[in-house]
Design a protein around this nucleic acid. Structure first.
Lengths: 320, 320
DNA sequence: TTGTACGCGTTATCAC
DNA sequence: GTGATAACGCGTACAA
C-alpha cells in the first residue's frame, strides 16, 4: 500500500505522526522523558513504515555504527571458523553487524583493517592473534577489543588451554592406559602457543614422570604430520600426541598406508572431519565454539560498561 | 611528531593548507579544475597528516560507502571459502571494503542481511545462491549484484560447469580407460545444480552410451558418501563418480576400511584435503578460485558503468 | 513534555 | 580556479 520505494527519514516520520523530528529521535533512542501517548503514536508509525534510522548518519554523529569487526587469520581456518560461527548469533541478537576480515597472518594487513574499522566507526573488534602480531597495534582499541589465542597483557583475551589439553592427553595415556613410550609431533616454537606451549607441556610432563621424550616439530599443515611420522616412529612409541588435528590427519594417513594400527593417536583439537575419517583417534576438544561465545559476550560487556581486562581460558575436554 | 590522536576533518586540512573546504574536497575527488600548485600544496598536507575522508559522511551524502557485501551460505564451506579468498584482494585493490555475512541456507537471513546492507549504503553485493533462494529477493540490487552457483535470469551470474565436469569425468572413464560399469553417488535433486544437474548429466551420458545407470542420491555430507557406498558397490562397478569432494571422502573411507582398492574414484570438486588423503582419487576442478575472480571483476564492472547481465560459466578441468 | 536551532563531515551549486 | 553556502539524516543543548 504505502510506497516503500525510497527510504523514509526521521523527518517523514515526524510529519506522519504529527510531532517534531526531535521527538521521533527521542522515541527511537528510548528517552524516558516522552509521554506514553506520544511514544505509542510515534512507534505505531515507525512500525507501520518499518522505519530504521540511517546508520551512516548516526555514525557521523559519533554514535557508533553497531558494527563489530572480526579479524580472522584465514577464512578457511577450521578452528577460527567455529569460533566465529558461534559468536555471530550473539552479535546479531544484540543488533550488531559483524564484519569479517582476513589478516592472512600479516600484521600490516591488521593495521590496514583497523584503520578501515576506525573510519567506519566500528564499536568494537575481535582479533584472532598470531605469531608476529604486536599488541601495540591495538592500543587505540584497548577498551573495545577482545583478543583470541594470545594473552596480551592489559587486554581482554580468550585463550585456549594449551598446557592443560596436553596434560589431559598425557595423563590419560600414562595413568589410565599405562603407556610408557609416548611420542609428540608439534609445531615450531616460534609459534608461541600451539608451538611453544604445547611442546613445553609435553617436555615438562616427560621430566616430571621420567619419560624419555620423543618429540619432533614441524609446521601447521597436515603434510607436516605425514612427513614427520617416521622420525617419531623410529623410537617405537606406543602412543603419539599431535599438537593439532591437521598433524593428526597427516600422521593417521601415514599409519594407515603402512598398515600400522597398534599405535594410539591423540590429537589436540577435535575436528568433525578427523573424527569421521579416523574415528579411533582420541581427541582433546579445545572448545573453539565456547571461545566464540565467551569472546562475543565479553566484548558486549566491555561496550556496555567500563570493565577491566581479564583473561579467560577456555576449558579443554578429553573425548574418547 | 604531529599529534594524530583525534581524526582530522576536511576542515582542518583546509585551514592547514590555507584554502577552503571545497578546494580540499576537489583535490580529494580528483577534480581536474584545480591549479597544479594548490593541488600539490593540499596533497602535501593530506599525506603528512594521513588524512582520509570520513566514510560515514560520504555515505550520508549518498556517495556510496565503497562497501561490497558478500553473502556466503556457510563460513566453513570450503568451496565458497576459496572463491571468497580469491575475490578479496581484488576488492581491496580497488578500495572496496568487503563485508562477509552468512546466510546459513536461509532465505530469511538473506533478506535481513540485504536490508542491513542497504542501510549501510553498500555499493554492491555478491550472493552465493542455494536451493530455496528466490531471485525476487534481489530485485533492488539487480544492477549491482553478482550471483554465484545459480543462473538467475536477468542477473549477472557465475556458474559452475556441472554438466561439463561430469561429462569430462565420464568421458575419461569410458573413452580413455574403457570402464563399462560406472557408478554415481550424488545429492538429492532438490538441490538444482549439485544435485539435479550433475545427476542428469550422468543419466544422459549413460543413455547416450548405453551404460546401465547405477546411481544413488543422498546429501552433501561425507557421511552420505560413506553410507551410500554399499548400495552402489553392490552392482560391482569398476569406477565411481562422486558429485562432490565430501562424498568422495566418505566413499574413500569406506573403500579403505574394506580394503577395496581396485575401484577408481572420481570426484567433482578438487579439495587439497582430498588430494592429500586419497591421492589416487581423480578430481575435476570446478574452478572455485577462478569463480571468485570472475565475480569480483564482473561486479566492479557493473558498478563502474551500465553493463547488461551475463552468465559466465567457469571452465572445469580434469586433474589426473 | 515537546519544539527550535545547530552541528557532525562531506559534496554540489552557486557566485566571485 | 576558488570560496561561501546549502543540503544530507540524525542527535541534542536550549528554549518554550
Amino acid at each position: 500500500m504505502s510506497k516503500s520505494s525510497t527510504n523514509l527519514t526521521i523527518k517523514d516520520i515526524a510529519k506522519l505522526s504529527g510531532v517534531s523530528k526531535s521527538t521521533v529521535s527521542r522515541v527511537i533512542n528510548h528517552d524516558p522523558m516522552v509521554k506514553e501517548s506520544t511514544r505509542n503514536k510515534v512507534m505505531a508509525i515507525v512500525e507501520q513504515y518499518q522505519f530504521t534510522p540511517s546508520k551512516s548518519a548516526r555514525a557521523m554523529r559519533g554514535y557508533g555504527n553497531k558494527v563489530i569487526g572480526i579479524i580472522v587469520t584465514r577464512l578457511d581456518s577450521i578452528s577460527e571458523n567455529h569460533a566465529v560461527q558461534s559468536m555471530l548469533p550473539i552479535f546479531y541478537a544484540n543488533g550488531y553487524d559483524p564484519i569479517i576480515i582476513e589478516s592472512q597472518f600479516s600484521a600490516a594487513k591488521v593495521a590496514e583493517h583497523l584503520m578501515m574499522l576506525r573510519e567506519k566507526q566500528a564499536d568494537g573488534i575481535i582479533v584472532f592473534a598470531f605469531t608476529g602480531l604486536d599488541s601495540s597495534l591495538l592500543t587505540v582499541w584497548q577498551h573495545k577489543c577482545v583478543v583470541i589465542a594470545r594473552p596480551f597483557s592489559a587486554y581482554s583475551c580468550i585463550c585456549y588451554d594449551d598446557i592443560g589439553a596436553v596434560n589431559k592427553a598425557l595423563t590419560y595415556l600414562y595413568q589410565s592406559e599405562k603407556h610408557k613410550k609416548i611420542g609428540f609431533i608439534g609445531v615450531d616454537k616460534q609459534d608461541q602457543t600451539t608451538g611453544g606451549l604445547r611442546y613445553q607441556a609435553y617436555i615438562d610432563f616427560c621430566t616430571a614422570y621420567k619419560i624419555q621424550p620423543n618429540a619432533v616439530l614441524g609446521n601447521l599443515s597436515y603434510y607436516s604430520g605425514y612427513e614427520l611420522a617416521e622420525s617419531v616412529l623410529v623410537h617405537s612409541p606406543t602412543a603419539i600426541v599431535c599438537a593439532t588435528d591437521s598433524i593428526a590427519l597427516g600422521l593417521n594417513k601415514f599409519l594407515s598406508e603402512k598398515n600400522i594400527n597398534n599405535i594410539i593417536v591423540i590429537s589436540i583439537g577435535s575436528s568433525e572431519l578427523l573424527n569421521f575419517l579416523f574415528s579411533q583417534t582420541i581427541t582433546v576438544d579445545l572448545g573453539f565454539d565456547k571461545a566464540g561465545i565467551y569472546a562475543a559476550n565479553e566484548l558486549l560487556l566491555m561496550l556496555e560498561k567500563q570493565v577491566n581486562a581479564k583473561i579467560i581460558t577456555v576449558p579443554s575436554q578429553l573425548l574418547k
